[in-house]
């Protein structure tokens, strides 16, 4: 499903965030990308999500080599992923429901179908009662759950998260972990970059550990 071969990302100035990394993630797996700060976890997530382009090597997702992809094809590849960030990247000028509607509008769903699906996603993360609330009025844990609802509403094949529990208290982090485990149980591939060890204890994922950009 996600196959990396000799993947390298070098930034202008020569800094290599990811060096010669190879791995193979099968469909339905839960994979944790671990490592200390600056190990290259976030860069690897960005490479998988096509937010960054590899300097060399290949990265094949669902049979498509992302390194050789035309720029215009990238948005369609991103739609296979549900992306979740540490800072959630929510839009604070609209309601929780409208935040979740955005991927469906991009996909071109009719308003009625989109609202139905967005409400189902909000229900799944326990936020249906707060669909009209502005994200600013939500707690950190709720904001992260809202970000998850936005990530899963388009029924992605891969959930890709970067430090999704970093800023959360223990209880909220556990809720998020459970949500990821739930989605993984129904066949969604989950790739999480985190240094939170509770993931290993609770979800027993496969672990890719990075150190200074290299897989160890």
């Amino acid at each position: 499903m996600i196959v990396a071969s000799n993947l390298t990302k070098r930034y202008p100035g020569g800094y290599e965030a990811v060096r010669d990394v190879s791995f193979d993630i099968s469909a339905g797996q839960m994979v944790l990308i671990g490592g200390h700060s600056g190990a290259g976890k976030t860069t690897l997530v960005k490479l998988i999500a096509s937010i960054e382009r590899p300097t060399s090597g290949s990265l094949v997702v669902n049979g498509q080599n992302l390194a050789a992809l035309r720029r215009s094809a990238i948005p369609y590849v991103r739609r296979h992923f549900g992306l979740i960030f540490q800072d959630q990247k929510l839009l604070f000028d609209r309601s929780a429901l409208d935040n979740v509607l955005l991927p469906l509008q991009i996909a071109g769903l009719s308003r009625r179908d989109a609202v139905r699906r967005a409400q189902a996603a909000l229900d799944k993360v326990g936020l249906l009662a707060r669909e009209k609330a502005n994200p600013i009025a939500l707690s950190g844990g709720e904001q992260q759950r809202l970000a998850i609802a936005r990530a899963v509403v388009n029924r992605p094949t891969v959930l890709l998260a970067d430090e999704p529990t970093a800023n959360l208290d223990v209880d909220s982090a556990r809720d998020i972990l459970d949500l990821f485990a739930d989605f993984n149980r129904v066949g969604v591939t989950v790739v999480v970059a985190t240094h939170d060890q509770s993931w290993i204890e609770r979800c027993h994922p496969n672990v890719l550990r990075l150190d200074h950009g290299r897989l160890v």
Binding site: P75, R78, L83, L90, L91, D93, L102, A107, N154
Partner: peptide, 16 residues
């Protein structure tokens, strides 16, 4: 800018 950045990350085309 924030909306555009998020939209691009979740698969919005330039046309959208």
């Amino acid at each position: 800018a924030a909306e555009i950045e998020v939209a691009r990350m979740i698969g919005a085309t330039d046309a959208f």
